[in-house]
Design a protein around this nucleic acid. Structure first.
Lengths: 336, 336
DNA sequence: CTGAAAGCGCTTACAG
DNA sequence: CTGAAAGCGCTTACAG
């Protein structure tokens, strides 16, 4: 039941100075091999663990990265976080996670909490409120204090920092074209995540595709599942829908359920492509054709970029990765 | 582009001592109101943020809790984490998250990483390897250093610490009896998470129920989805299954898919109850009747217990919460 | 090869 | 009401 042992205590036990103990433990050539050995043995015996707080204070670095995400419940963020954590462990870094819950205020609070020496850098996926309001003063503070910042997935181009995201507009455009190629002419865009940069980008891609294909657009935007289902069933009844491009997993699943319930077949009557490749996409019957957002890779690349930045391995100019994505063909669209 | 300002710098600007600045900022009555005001204004102007590392070192507490979980991908852990984070934010604490990836070694590493002054306490859900091997020496180290420890969900009774879990055995027993009451006589236990305390407990409950009901047991244990599906289809063919008790969400979904694919009806031919109430349970067709594990509440209670322990509000005797759970009736069992 | 000293940025008991 | 001093636990340039 002892308390943690310190350098001071070890030095007393050995009748040497604290400096000697410290150097011996870090294998400094200044110290004689015998002393080094003695010190290390005693340290081992007493299960000495250096106090990270003191080390960090002295070294002015913490080997930990702060991560702020809007939520952890959507599969995308859980996977991205997994990618971040895995890469961090690999590179010898730890992570501190805060969840903004889509709120700008909580995001700003978390930033404050972390900007006080606790972390060497911040990885952020912006909250919906921040993206909607475009009020990024709290983000600018990070830059002002010269704390490295990496934005991922939900990025804002005007912020001068490293970024990792997928080319959502391009993907949405290609997905729309794919639906067109399956003879769909009434392609409806369905989203439960309005007001995020990713959703905006996807809408842009969708509209671009429609314009070049000379088709009309149609949107279902919702906050609650009930609203979504009602809107979809209405469109079906009015014969205004033979395909769905869904911006998030939940809206894709809700759409499929409404479609099946109304007696239509997937993909013969209505084809669907979703974003986010979660477990529901894989296991629903029929399984959902999705744009793979490479959540884990985004997370892993964001962390790697951060560490490279911290360790000065990157040029001064900020990086802006746009990951290539691919469409995972499943049963909600016709086979090629 | 300035660097972060310190007490020392503020004190120089104001021509007072560091102590005065420090006390003024903490509203000490020792300092005159005018000085306090002046100091605070300058601090505000310079966006002074106290260095948490230095504060923590001095105060010997960090107001942050370490959380080590086996994985973040299963919905249960994502939800539990959400509960932990929410409650932590509410109580003014931060959390540091490590993922053990079900490995005892990574778990031990994370513990070492966190036990060096970084956190005030540790919340843990044990990795599968640790639970299987029962080698808990790395956990004992935590206790030895008098670091508060709360175990949740995957607990081990022999460890002397606060615990939060659900009564898995009882729940499994009741779920089994519920299936019996729907005239099921060939109830198969299906699991993809063998060798965890929760699975062991559920098996115990299942077997207890079967014994009192004088029924035979039958197990499907698997590592890959293919194995599960094959095993289930075999049992169906041999007419050895009219109900499934599934220990995790994935095995429940896999079972349902196999059953439907083999042409049986749910719940008329085969009824199913699962554990873990994730999004797939809710949205699969038919939706899955599940035992609600109260993931968020487990997380939130674990964190609250931790904070109470740290702040000395708890008796010396360790607490052992067993949360009441309930069965969420959906379409994979007959209505009551 | 070893140790005394300064310092990271803060807090607080004590003196004045 | 204000400040000098000690200390949290470490690291490292410097002296010996």
């Amino acid at each position: 039941m002892e308390n943690r042992v310190t350098l001071k205590e070890l030095s007393k036990l050995l009748n040497v100075s604290i400096s000697t103990v410290s150097k011996a433990l870090r294998d400094s050539p200044e110290i004689s091999p015998e002393t080094r050995k003695k010190v290390k043995e005693l340290a081992e015996l007493n299960q000495y663990v250096p106090n990270a707080l003191a080390q960090n204070l002295k070294n002015r670095k913490t080997k930990t990265i702060g991560v702020i995400i809007p939520s952890i419940l959507p599969h995308f963020f859980a996977k991205a976080l997994h990618g971040i954590e895995t890469k961090a462990a690999e590179l010898g870094y730890g992570i501190i996670i805060c969840i903004s819950n889509e709120s700008r205020e909580k995001e700003a609070e978390s930033i404050k909490r972390l900007m006080n020496g606790r972390v060497d850098g911040l990885i952020l996926s912006l909250s919906r409120e921040t993206q909607a309001s475009k009020d990024t003063s709290h983000i600018m503070d990070i830059l002002k204090y010269r704390i490295p910042l990496v934005l991922f997935d939900r990025v804002l181009e005007e912020i001068d920092c490293d970024k990792v995201s997928i080319n959502d507009a391009l993907q949405a455009e290609q997905a729309t074209i794919k639906l067109f190629q399956q003879s769909c002419r009434k392609i409806v865009y369905c989203t439960g995540i309005s007001n995020t940069s990713v959703d905006d980008q996807r809408k842009i891609g969708y509209l671009q595709a429609l314009e070049s294909l000379k088709l009309d657009s149609n949107f279902v935007e919702f906050d609650t599942p009930e609203v979504a289902s009602a809107a979809i069933q209405k469109l079906l009844k009015q014969d205004k829908m033979d395909a769905v491009l869904a911006s998030d997993e939940l809206s894709a699943i809700l759409a499929m359920k409404s479609i099946l319930k109304s007696g239509y077949r997937i993909p013969e009557d209505v084809a669907i492509i979703g974003f986010t490749n979660g477990s529901m996409s894989e296991h629903f019957v029929p399984s959902l054709t999705t744009v793979d957002q490479h959540a884990e890779e985004q997370g892993s690349l964001a962390l790697e970029t951060m560490v490279d930045r911290i360790e000065g391995k990157l040029p001064a100019d900020k990086l802006n990765y746009k990951l290539e994505t691919s469409i995972i063909q499943r049963d909600s669209t016709l086979p090629e």
